[in-house]
Design a protein around this nucleic acid. Structure first.
Lengths: 109, 109
DNA sequence: TCATTATATAAGCGATCACTTATATATGCA
DNA sequence: TGCATATATAAGTGATCGCTTATATAATGA
């Protein structure tokens, strides 16, 4: 891995909201509409974070009808490092389970 | 480790020049005057990178007379991760050995 | 077809980044 | 003491960041 790739990869994860997004994705694939509930941020902001994570090849998208389902890219050269980092972070307050309880979970599948 | 600490740590290493500085420091402690030769950047730029790395607690400084000798902080919560990352990076073109050969190595010790 | 829904893109904005040049501080030595 | 050396700080600058609001694209369903 060269310095430029490493720099881009680390820059992409050097943001609190993106770390949170990745933390959620480390458990299950999700679509953007769910992140807007989970992260307390606007839809365009999330979309832009996704683009940045995708450019750094941290995540993969799968278009399914109206939804875009995002998941971690296990082929990333630093995937194991990412898993280690995410494991060190506490569980987010809001969970997908709480969304389901509130009836806000979108059934993308 | 909380999200803010993780963000600060990752932001600090998300820069090519700082990765290079850390790569050098993974082999031996060095002072700034050596980095100005190794990195092809100005002394103030290096000094500012050092400050940022120190604020993120990646490195320690030891004042020794006129020199400030910098070394990796092995107590950092992500030290092992950093070592893993640095090991994935190629050896820099310029080496401390080449500085010695050119007579540019400062004897800080 | 037309309205709704999910997502992406564009443009704008204040904040931060990484650098520069200039200057300050502080140590060592003649 | 006074000068050279090593480093830090300050101020300024263009680029990028992360967000916002507004709008575009694209798929679904009545």
């Amino acid at each position: 891995m060269d310095y430029q790739q490493m720099e881009q990869s680390l820059k992409a994860v050097g943001d609190g909201n993106r770390l949170l997004i990745l933390k959620y994705l480390s458990k299950e694939a999700l679509c953007i509409c769910e992140f807007t509930e989970l992260l307390d941020t606007s839809q365009p902001a999330i979309s832009q974070h996704m683009r940045k994570l995708k450019q750094a090849q941290w995540i993969c998208e799968e278009k399914r009808g109206r939804w875009t389902i995002w998941s971690l890219n296990k082929e990333h050269g630093l995937f194991e490092v990412l898993v280690t980092l995410l494991a060190m972070l506490p569980e987010p307050e809001r969970t997908v389970e709480s969304l389901i309880a509130e009836g806000k979970k979108v059934n993308c599948t």
